[in-house]
Amino acid sequence: MTAAVPALQTQTGTPARRRVRPGTIVRYAALTLAALVIILPVYLAMITSILPANEVATVPPHFVTLHPTFENFRHVFRVVPMWRFLLNSTVVASCITLAQLVTAALAAYAFVFLRFPLRRVLFFLFLSTLMVPAEATIVPNFQTILHLHWINTYQGLAVPFAATAFGTFLLRQFFLSLPKEILDAARVDGCGHLRTLWSIVLPLSRPAFATLAAYAFLAAWNQYLWPLLATNKPNMQTVQIGLRALVGNEASDPGLAMAGTVMALIPTMALLILAQRHIVRGLTGGAVKG
């Protein structure tokens, strides 16, 4: 806390002052220390995944290695269908993302540009879905999937998440800021609503769609409880559930577990680096103005 306080001064101080002050050095030291602590679990996972067998599980632990190896990664592919896990996760997360973009775009368009009876009631209905925790609906949802014979299917994993109230609000906020005149012009030109959405609203709202896409993909890729319930065959499991098989028993090998962990983490890390701005905006939602 004390180290943090000079920040306020630095932030508000005159930019002309270029001399390095002791406060700045203390702050850099504190920032570095905090960054090291936060990154430690990820760093250890990465280094453990490339350690040779005789350097894994040693005391003291190896923080660096002179003999990096991909043997742990090869081992993962021998023990579990890792490619299949990654494929399943990619298919399911992509389907959920695409479906959410379509359903949320249609719903947001209706709420913003169309007038119809019960609009406010339906809007409240959308709002109310945010208050229902997924954990409270798993029993009937599992039964539904069971009756539809959707256990171990992509539709069983994806369809329950094909619509999103959060995404609808995100797009709605953006649509509300669009200039009305452009849309009126489109209507006069005789564009149908679907065409107006596709060729006018969509191109103007790219940032909002990118935010929703990045956020939806990340959330779908990282799901745990539902994929655990909706699958029981390894061939249909997502990578998050596949990881379970790597820690199941006492004799589990840290090198193996961390190689699997790193493979599950890489796609989301790549997405974070590519679309950090969008993900941050999606996560913080209406909490702060993004």
């Binding site: 990154i39 990282n222 745990y224 559930i241 599950a264 941050v280």
Partner: peptide, 10 residues
């Protein structure tokens, strides 16, 4: 902010 990309399983 990096942990926002990390799943609960990872």
């Amino acid at each position: 902010s990096s942990t926002i990309a990390t799943s609960v399983a990872v």
